[in-house]
């Protein structure tokens, strides 16, 4: 099922997800419901309201530039499936 406002195959590709037909239908329906909800939000009259990135008017959460501690290379690599030369090994990403 493909809603007119989104393409489930394209979304799955962007999210790097391999979906079965059944899953596609399942998630399409869920995403469709979410979009329905946004339509309700869109119906609210926001004339004269400044667009905002946050609900709270809090600005300038800033820290002084004072360096703190770091992980050791061993800690960084602890969860890596494969490592070499203190770096994480991944499948080659350029041709």
């Amino acid at each position: 099922m493909t809603d007119e406002t989104f393409n489930i195959n394209y979304l799955a590709q962007l999210a790097r997800l391999e979906l079965t037909d059944e899953e596609k239908q399942h998630f399409s329906s869920q995403l469709g419901d979410t979009l329905e909800y946004f339509k309700r939000l869109e119906a609210i009259d926001v004339e004269g309201v400044e667009p905002m990135a946050h609900a709270f008017p809090i600005y300038n959460v800033l820290q002084e530039d004072v360096p703190s501690s770091t992980f050791s290379a061993e800690e960084v690599l602890a969860n890596a499936p494969k490592s070499s030369e203190n770096q994480i090994v991944v499948p080659k990403v350029v041709e």
Binding site: V66, P67, F71
Partner: peptide, 25 residues
């Protein structure tokens, strides 16, 4: 001296993966 969104240090030439913290990763 530190990174953009966390205070892990940053400078050029450090051995690989020695300038990270939970935010960086």
């Amino acid at each position: 001296k530190s990174k953009m969104f966390t205070r892990a240090p940053y400078y050029y030439g450090a051995p690989p993966n020695t300038l990270t913290d939970p935010v960086v990763l």
